[in-house]
């Protein structure tokens, strides 16, 4: 009897693994329903648009983080990179109010690309552990941010109308940020699933030794991934400053944790090699809801972090348990 129950539990676990994303989706739907019942103002067009706009930057960053994690790495420097690129672009726009917004965006991305490339070289060429390399660069980049700003803030009145419109403008009725996030998702969804290079990112994380043996340029791919993460952080930096209309030295401090959390919630395996853009999308949305909707149901915003943390821990522990049960089942099949 007991064995039977156990077997059924195992089957359920196995199903959970297969339908991980479905589970996440169901969880999101239930969460939304609960919130909606407690506060009918939640599922209104206006609020949803708000929520999406607030989650867009997180979404853009999480795509980059997913690629880094796919290769088995991690990037703790992105908060600092956001601050630096945001600060640089804000200072430029203060000095030259006439420049078009697209130049600001490119400028920010260039700054981010430089930082990311540096990390990529450290990790890929010199085999520095990703956590240490990004930790060091994070300190340097924060310091440089304070240096270029001389400790001052750049506030909204110093920014040109065009610069602020980067985040407030609309394309085809969709907020620019959301539109950008959609473009980024589509582009990287295509890249990761539909190009050779994209598939090699998965291969490198799934089994680095096998990648070396079968002639996949592992180091180049790793360097590339950090460079892309940097460029996306640079982009996010400009968006961030435009959206919150202020650039400070400590902008986005600790934000890397949110981004990593979104990736982990979305089912990206921290060991590398597995994770899907669709799952990532759901993970980001879930985190976005937790960030934005809890105040609507009178959960103190100060509870938010602990709740987030617990959900993340629950997600990774469930993952382990599901994997274990799968292995156990495989052993049973051997009939020894």
């Amino acid at each position: 009897m007991k064995a039977d129950a156990k077997l059924r539990a195992l089957r359920a676990m196995k199903a959970a693994e297969r339908y991980r994303e479905l589970g996440l989706l169901v969880f999101i739907v239930v969460l939304c329903a609960v919130i909606q019942v407690r506060n009918p103002g939640f599922l209104t067009i206006e609020n949803i648009a708000d929520l999406l706009a607030n989650t867009a930057i997180l979404g853009i960053l999480s795509v980059g983080m997913m690629m880094v994690i796919l290769t088995g790495g991690i990037d703790l420097s992105i908060g600092a990179t956001i601050a630096l690129s945001g600060m640089v672009s804000a200072l430029t726009v203060t000095a030259l109010p006439g420049i078009p917004p697209i130049v600001s965006i490119l400028e920010g991305m260039l700054v981010g690309l430089a930082v990311g490339s540096l990390i990529g070289i450290l990790v890929a060429r010199f085999d520095v552990l990703p956590i240490i390399a990004t930790l060091g660069i994070m300190n340097v980049v924060r310091g440089v941010t304070y240096l270029v700003s001389k400790g001052a803030w750049v506030s909204s009145y110093q920014m040109s109308e065009g610069f602020r419109s980067i985040s407030s403008g609309k394309i085809l009725g969709v907020n620019n940020l959301v539109a950008l996030a959609i473009v980024v998702y589509a582009a990287f969804g295509y890249f990761l699933n539909q190009t050779r290079m994209g598939r090699r990112v998965y291969a490198v994380g799934s089994n680095p030794e096998a990648a070396d043996v079968s002639g996949i340029p592992r180091r180049n791919i790793v360097a590339f991934v950090y460079a892309v993460m940097g460029a996306l952080s640079g982009l996010a930096g400009v968006l961030w400053v435009s959206k919150f209309a202020s650039a400070q030295g400590d902008t986005a401090g600790g934000y890397e944790m949110n981004v990593i959390a979104a990736a982990v919630l979305g089912g990206v395996s921290i060991a590398g090699g597995s994770g899907k853009v669709s799952g990532l999308f759901l993970g980001t949305i879930l985190l976005g809801i937790l960030n934005n909707a809890l105040p609507l149901v009178n959960v103190s915003p100060f509870w938010q972090q602990a709740i987030q943390g617990l959900i993340i821990l629950a997600a990774i522990l469930t993952n382990v348990l599901v994997k274990r049960s799968g292995q156990h089942q495989a052993l049973r099949k051997r009939a020894i």
């Binding site: 990593i260 959390a261 602990a306 987030q308 522990l317 994997k323």
Partner: peptide
């Protein structure tokens, strides 16, 4: 949970511990 790296374990408790601190003192 030996399958989990120390990074990911302490990352999640990092969020939780500070989260609890916020719950207590706002």
């Amino acid at each position: 949970f030996k399958e989990l790296s120390a990074v990911i374990v302490t990352l999640s408790t990092m969020i939780i511990y500070r989260g609890i601190a916020y719950m207590i003192l706002e």
